[in-house]
Amino acid sequence: MVVSASPPAARADPPPAPRARSRALRGAGLLCAAGVLVLVMLLSIWVGSKGIPFASTWSVLWHNDGSADAVIIHDQRIPRTLLGALVGAALGLAGAVMQALTRNPLADPGLLGVNNGASAAVVSAIAFAGVSGVLGYVWFAFLGAAIASVVVYLLGTAGRAGATPDRLVMSGAALTAVLQAYIGAVLLIDPDTFNQFRFWNVGSLSGRRGDVLLQVSPFIAVGIVLALLLARPLNVLALGEQTGKALGAHIGRTRVLGAIAVTLLCGASTAAIGPIAFIGLAVPQAVRILVGPDQRWVLPYSMVLSPVLLIGADVLGRILNPPEELQVGIVTAFLGAPVFIALCRRRKLARL
């Protein structure tokens, strides 16, 4: 008896590739985040201590007629908003890169001593060089941030073991403690220095005009490009040193370039508006919960969503106690801390 072979089952059409669908969703989400950023920037240009109707704001935004409203918008609010967007993007990227370099989801740019290096340089400039004003602080703050990052890296790479995330973290913590002690000593000895330093140290976008934006934008632009180019190497670094080396990755070069990017981004941002807390810590953590650990998405999302938080906090600070303003550094601390605690309580910290 011959048994005829059953005809092969017809193949079903393959479903759409999950990877392609995921990329499309993430891309659409990034576009939505960019749209939210544009709306927040427009809100920042419209809202202020002096009430200007939205129609008038929109009109003078595109046509500077020289009126009092136009002067306020073009000379104060637009530079302030653009600086907030640039600094927010820089802080978000710096935090994401720092967390990827150290493989520590609780790391932030202050971990390398960048903020304290900038603060120590500003204190020294005020106390010993008689420097005053934001434009005078910028270069000292940036130089201090760069020196602190170099010192941390040299300490972290000393010895046969070379640079490791743990060594970099410990070196940054040690230098931070030393710099904080130095800053406290100078401020206690010189009350005049304390009076000047405290206005910069609280973190503020108020009073920052176009000249500050022009000074720091080249450094931030280079840092942004460098950070985005490191997305793939940071993905490999997340697999561990041995696996990364087996895949042909240059671990040491990635860490050096990452440290340079963090220094440029966080150093220039801190120099421009003072230390800002929680932006570089909370936003990348929230982004990883949304899009996963792939740095090719974490970095651009952090770059777009961090300015939303910073500019939104600045707008909120203008309307909470009119006509006075709450500094953006205070508002971000109040907003960022509860949000970050909620993220930690809701689920485990997103893995890198």
Rank of each mutant, 00 (worst) to 15 (best):
G172H: 02
M303S: 07
P323M: 01
Q196N: 09
L31G: 12
D192S: 12
V123Y: 09
L309A: 03
V36G: 12
A141M: 02
R351N: 08
L226Y: 05
D69M: 11
L39P: 10
N195Q: 15
D294I: 00
V225F: 12
G144P: 01
P8W: 13
L155P: 06
L93M: 01
Y182C: 05
G210S: 05
L247V: 12
Q180W: 10
K245W: 05
A238K: 11
G29F: 01
A246I: 06
S56I: 13
D166M: 14
N201Y: 05
S6C: 15
M98P: 04
V2Y: 15
A161D: 09
A174S: 08
G117H: 08
L43Y: 10
L264M: 12
S4W: 15
A238M: 00
V131D: 11
L91H: 09
P7H: 15
P307K: 08
V328R: 10
A33S: 13
T270W: 07
S306D: 05
G110V: 07
L326M: 10
G267Q: 01
G162W: 13
V123M: 05
G207Q: 00
L43P: 14
G113D: 03
A161G: 14
A350K: 05
V169I: 15
A146K: 08
Q76K: 07
N104S: 03
G95K: 10
S44H: 00
L257G: 06
G317I: 02
V262Y: 01
V47S: 11
A68L: 15
G27T: 09
A34C: 08
S44N: 03
A85Q: 01
L154F: 09
D294G: 08
C266R: 08
V47K: 09
Q295T: 10
G84C: 04
L309K: 11
I276E: 07
V339N: 09
A145Q: 06
L143W: 05
G252A: 02
P323R: 09
V202D: 04
Q99Y: 01
V3Y: 01
A231H: 14
S49D: 11
R346I: 03
A120W: 00
V236C: 01
A313R: 02
V315Y: 11
R19F: 02
A259H: 10
L101Q: 02
D190E: 04
R77E: 10
R346W: 12
S306I: 02
